[in-house]
Design a protein around this nucleic acid. Structure first.
Lengths: 168, 168
DNA sequence: ATATATTTTCAATAAGTTTTGAAAATTCAA
DNA sequence: TTGAATTTTCAAAACTTATTGAAAATATAT
């Protein structure tokens, strides 16, 4: 398979993959393009390679920067801005985990602890089922939360090394 | 907070939460409703409690069943079908992991190994960056894959118990 | 200061997804 | 069988989200 073909396939599947993970197709495609580009690219490069409008590139690169996955870089002697993706996949993964934990998991856990305090007689099966379910989800969520914290702080070789030993 | 209010909030936030995870709002809401219902519910119960159409309930319960999160149950003496959700959150989580692994991660890893075999001179920086990136993602993905396999096979108390000890 | 290059914004539009509801199919009791 | 209850299907409508493109804002060189 030729490089250009492989690149196109990678970008398109990464885009489709992203949509299952709450990331929009274009944002994931731009990310994929930058991941396989050895040098930083400009808005125009991205527009051209992915056939999308300037506004679209602008909004999605902005989001990628806010997720901490892409950096704006200045190249000396050039007027235009360039974009470059973090290439270390471990860093990419921990960065995504960190952001999603902050944006989604933490607020959900906070809400669940509120809901657990519902009034009513625990002998009522409706109340009991509600409290049990919400409590169960919260406990599970808290454990996942602690585990993710360790992962975020850890360094790849330590984390995966230990984990693999552990699971052997 | 009254039970009815807490229930409404739980259902609505679980729905919103679901949309970040590639699950549609209504499917997540029906799941939430069934999770906090002590007894199985019919299509009509769900329609009424969530104010949604019969067709919508039908499609989404079908999906929940295909994800292995909800069972159709027959109640003796009743003509209608009833639906009931698995209440053990650990089982819910491993079931979701199992399905998503099968539907998303496994095909992606298969594709990545294909793409790594791209033709061309590794001294070309474009080829090199492509192979390095794709290879890095594949290796990371494979490790995640093994870890998830262990998790799916494990039992909750063993898994979380050992993990907590490990991370202490 | 002025002109030019570049980036950003955002209303309009397009594309994609979910929901409805009524008709068709199925199930089951009598 | 027949017919009432129930479930399923799916085309059309409603809703949601993503994209465009041109105008406005900003930055830079001369």
């Amino acid at each position: 398979m030729k490089l250009s073909e492989a690149k196109t396939q990678f970008i398109s599947s990464w885009g489709a993959f992203g949509t299952h993970w709450g990331i929009n197709r274009t944002m994931a495609q731009i990310h994929a393009l930058l991941l396989v580009s050895p040098d930083p690219l400009t808005q125009d490069d991205i527009m051209e390679q992915l056939n999308i409008s300037r506004g679209n590139v602008n909004m999605n690169t902005r989001d990628l920067v806010s997720w901490g996955l892409v950096d704006r870089v200045l190249i000396q002697g050039e007027r235009k801005e360039f974009f470059s993706a973090e290439k270390d996949i471990w860093k990419v993964a921990t960065q995504i985990i960190k952001e999603r934990k902050k944006r989604e998991l933490d607020p959900m856990l906070k809400l669940l602890s509120q809901l657990e305090k519902v009034d009513g007689d625990k002998k009522d099966k409706h109340v009991k089922q509600f409290v049990d379910t919400v409590g169960g989800i919260r406990k599970f969520g808290n454990q996942a939360d602690s585990m993710l914290d360790v992962m975020i702080k850890a360094d790849e070789s330590w984390f995966l090394g230990s984990l693999l030993k552990f699971f052997k």
